[in-house]
Nucleic acid binder design. Structure first.
Length: 711
DNA sequence: GTCAGTTATCTTTTT
DNA sequence: GATAACTGAC
């Protein structure tokens, strides 16, 4: 291990062993190197056995990479070292310990879709209106309550109106049913280990003994349960090493608490703090632009990145007529650079704030014959056909899992509809649904249905028996042919059904991969891996493709050329009801986006954009663009070209008079009714500020807005 | 109970 | 412009 390749600050972070340390590691400052060298140093020089080390990363991919890199540094066997995400480590602990609190180790991990389905069925059971209590926002409330470690009881005691009270009841029922289903959600993976630690001090003691040195990456994005988990493990010996950058804290909406890093010393009073401020990634111009924006935030630790790298090119700004034009111009820009500098497509990254923006860019790439990969968006394991297949596996492993049972009892169709399923539920008092299927003789169910249920029960039982000895791959292949799913999809003959079958096949090859890489493969093991898996974990940058993803997914990555699309107020930064509230986090997000770039960054925005495929809505350039000093931005030909293009389009659409006056009530196709509070300018270009009755305030341009005067 | 065709709603961001 | 939810004919 060659420690001299590190700069003095990095060396300090690596060599100073024992006691709490916080490393502020700015973008591109060699954070990953410090972490891997630190772990290597702990093993090699301090003689700490790998099995006593716990390292927490943000993605599974980062965990794998870290393991590989440490391997390159040390000779000793790394077997026994624990590196993973908070969620995977939580799952690992629960598999061993959850029987203490009433689940079995075969528990199922529910993703958002499953959790939403459960919430929805509870809302229906409680006879509540699905419009007033929509499953999605209810789940968000439950989740944030869980993440602040609040029980349903505590939630209920704080409820100040009927609506909140009902949500509390839904929450209570949700927890109860999760247990009945022998299932946990993502939040439980963090919270349940803490519950166990609390109830069984000897278990906490066991893990304190096991994880003697704890290292955490991306510490700025830890939430309350994650902090508590780490604190519980380390508060006695205080051997904790955390790395992060408050300027890159972008998960506040998920409960991440930036004060965990800003006030690290409150919890670990003797903490040493090291700041890594030299950036090795980006040009001076990119860094300066990123700094000029993020330094507008008030809630941040004092520090500034610097670099020995060149100034580099100025930042290009693309102004487009609409989202289609934007996609076109971005791709044109990519082609120009590729031609000029003779670089591969894999050097390019296109970033956006929302997944919905990817489609139009995707279409344009296809039209131009450019290969691309998209990270995120509609997840592979969230597709209906894949979820259906997984539901079979889950139910085979965990016959309490009602959500999976609901998915598969009538897929493929076997004549068991809603009515029959409800009769089954009404008739049973067992949580084991498979067992309850054996006791249906006394209730009124049609002969045909009864036979179908019997066959279903036999099917599941036989696979559940086989799963104890057969390999998952053989099991699933047999199951698929028994269900005749290939015929089911291929006989439909549509492109969609062909795609669906292709996805099933991809799933099969995934199972095969899993078997080849696991020493003792089981169905349950496969399901666990899959439930904690994300797109980025399987991504590799070897192929010559343009990469696209949201800014959130891009954290920790670097590319030569980075495009940030959709820089419009309302889209990036996205603003909620009344502005400013979360602009600081949006600004950090913009900072993350810019600092991904090594050689050049390109910003783009459109003058109008369609939302949900509707009418184009006029947009205005993001405040973030204005926060960058002009001398760092290239105001080159692309703007002029774009303006003339605009003009052509607009000339054919001249409106000489604007009849809208302040105080009028107007109707907008998307936003509904609202009151005009201000007008600026004249004729077709009049900007009209409207306070809509749904509490959004919008500034619209008359000739685009298509407003109807109501009174 | 099933299936095809229609309609409502949706968009932050993810482990 | 995609997907879940609903409707009506068989």
């Amino acid at each position: 291990m060659d420690i001299k390749s590190l700069n003095s600050k990095q060396q300090e972070a690596v060599l100073d062993v024992g006691g709490p340390m916080l490393v502020f590691a700015g973008a591109g400052s060699g954070k990953t190197r410090v972490l891997t060298y630190k772990i290597a140093h702990l093993i090699e020089s301090s003689g700490l056995p790998p099995e006593h080390i716990l390292a927490v990363t943000f993605t599974n991919k980062a965990a794998q990479e870290m393991k590989m890199r440490i391997h390159e540094l040390v000779d000793s066997n790394l077997k026994g070292i624990t590196i993973g995400t908070f969620h995977s480590i939580g799952a690992m602990i629960l598999r061993r310990q959850i029987s203490k609190i009433g689940w079995t180790s075969d528990f199922t991990i529910y993703d958002q879709t499953d959790a939403k389905a459960l919430v929805k069925s509870i809302i229906k059971d409680l006879n509540l209106d699905l419009k007033m209590y929509d499953p999605k926002s209810t789940l968000i409330k439950i989740s944030s309550s869980k993440n602040s470690m609040q029980s349903p009881k505590e939630f209920l005691s704080l409820a100040s109106n009927v609506h909140e009270e009902k949500i509390g009841q839904i929450y209570a029922q949700y927890e109860k049913q999760l247990k009945q289903n022998n299932s946990v959600d993502f939040d439980d993976l963090l919270v349940k280990p803490l519950v166990i630690f609390d109830k069984y001090p000897e278990i906490l003691e066991f893990y304190r003994e096991k994880f003697q040195y704890v290292l955490v990456d991306e510490y700025q994005d830890t939430n309350k349960p994650q902090f508590t988990f780490i604190y519980q493990l380390t508060k006695i010996k205080q051997d904790i090493f955390v790395v992060g950058d408050d300027d890159q804290s972008i998960y506040g909406w998920r409960g991440a608490d930036i004060t965990n890093i800003l006030n690290f010393k409150n919890s670990y009073m003797n903490a040493k703090i090291v700041k890594l401020e030299q950036n090795y990634r980006s040009t001076k111009n990119i860094l300066e632009a990123a700094w000029s924006v993020v330094s507008k935030n008030t809630n941040r630790a004092d520090k500034k990145l610097w670099t020995d790298n060149d100034f580099g090119d100025k930042i290009d700004l693309i102004q487009a007529y609409n989202e289609k034009d934007e996609a076109h111009r971005i791709i044109e820009h990519i082609s120009n650079i590729k031609r000029k500098n003779d670089v591969e497509y894999s050097k390019f990254l296109i970033l956006y704030r929302t997944n919905a923006q990817s489609r139009i860019i995707e279409d344009t790439l296809i039209k131009n014959g450019i290969l691309y990969t998209i990270i995120g968006g509609v997840k592979f394991y969230d597709r209906k056909e894949v979820k259906d297949l997984l539901a079979y596996m889950r139910f085979i492993v965990n016959p309490n899992d009602q959500i999976s049972f609901d998915r598969i009892i009538n897929f493929p169709a076997r004549g068991i509809g809603k009515t029959t399923v409800n009769k089954i539920y009404d008739n049973t008092d067992s949580n084991n649904i498979l067992l309850s299927l054996d006791n249906l003789k006394n209730i009124k169910i049609g002969k045909k249905q009864l036979l179908a249920i019997e066959n279903f029960s036999i099917l599941i039982k036989s696979y559940s028996e086989r799963s104890k000895k057969d390999s998952p791959l053989i099991l699933i292949k047999d199951l698929l042919s028994e269900l005749k799913l290939k015929e089911y999809y291929l006989n439909q003959g549509t492109q969609e059904s062909l795609d669906r079958w292709a996805n099933i096949e991809e799933c099969i090859s995934g199972i095969s991969d899993y078997e080849n890489n696991t020493s003792n493969p089981t169905l349950g093991g496969y399901l666990e891996e899959v439930s904690l898996f994300t797109d980025i974990d399987s991504w590799n940058d070897d192929s010559d493709k343009v990469t696209m993803m949201t800014i959130h997914s891009s954290k920790g990555l670097e590319f030569d050329y980075v495009y940030i699309a959709g820089l419009e107020d309302g889209l990036f930064p996205i603003v909620r009801l009344f502005e400013d509230e979360d602009v600081e986090e949006e600004r950090r997000l913009f900072y993350v986006a810019l600092t991904r770039a090594q050689i050049a960054a390109v910003l783009s925005y459109a003058n109008s954009r369609r939302k949900f495929g509707g009418e184009p809505i006029p947009t205005s350039q993001s405040r973030f663009i204005r926060e960058i000093p002009e001398n760092l931005i290239n105001s080159s030909t692309s703007i002029k070209k774009s303006l003339s293009f605009n003009k052509q389009r607009l000339d054919s659409n001249i409106i000489s008079d604007c009849p809208i006056k302040v105080g009028q009530i107007v109707m907008h196709k998307i936003f509904g009714k609202g009151k005009v509070v201000e007008t600026e300018g004249s004729a077709g270009n009049t900007k009209i500020t409207i306070m809509f009755f749904n509490n959004t305030r919008k500034k619209l341009i008359y000739k685009y807005a298509n407003l109807k005067i109501m009174e």
